[in-house]
């Protein structure tokens, strides 16, 4: 099943999705886990790491690892501590998983990457899942560090919308 968002509305930066678009396979139970984490963390943003099978065009999530948001202003920013990040990666590698991407919440929207997200993105081709609570929507974007289209940063990277399938 393809799921663009629970509102059915696409963010303004979206292009029409089709079979050629990058895809994130996100099982329903993990999607539910992310949403519950986001609701439990409100009014602050929550964040975590997604493990599974990585491919630059089609990745499969098999685990979600919640992380502590250590940002100075956690209601509007998130940051994962490098030591916790490394511990998580080592757990993930120990189970044979790859780094598929990351997730975080926007308690009050937007239901797409913000300018801050664009400026801070650093992981080429990984998935950045955003759980927006108000308005409610779950979407995912790949960070492309070169090329064209979509939301562009001064560094030349941009977020490309991807399909979420369960």
């Amino acid at each position: 099943m393809t799921r663009e968002s629970d509102t059915g509305a696409r963010p303004s930066s979206d292009a029409a999705t089709d079979e050629d678009d990058p895809t994130l396979v996100l099982p329903d139970e993990i999607r539910t886990q992310l949403c519950e984490h986001a609701r439990a963390g409100t009014p602050e943003e929550i964040c975590g790491i997604l493990g599974g099978t990585f491919d630059s065009d089609r990745s499969q999530v098999s685990s979600a690892y919640p992380a502590t948001n250590v940002a100075d202003t956690p209601r509007t920013r998130y940051r994962i501590d490098p030591e916790e990040q490394l511990e998580c990666f080592e757990r993930l590698e120990a189970t044979g998983e790859e780094i598929v991407g990351f997730y975080h919440s926007h308690p009050n929207g937007p239901s797409r990457p913000s300018e801050t997200d664009v400026e801070a993105a650093t992981w080429p081709d990984r998935s950045y899942v955003i759980v927006s609570l108000e308005p409610f929507a779950v979407g995912s974007w790949r960070w492309r560090s070169s090329g064209a289209v979509d939301t562009r940063s001064e560094s030349g990277g941009y977020f490309e919308r991807e399909r979420i399938v369960s």
């Binding site: 202003t73 998130y78 940051r79 994962i80 400026e119 993105a121």
Partner: peptide, 8 residues
């Protein structure tokens, strides 16, 4: 480690 950060 590439940084993991951002925000709304």
């Amino acid at each position: 480690l590439r940084l993991i950060k951002g925000g709304s």
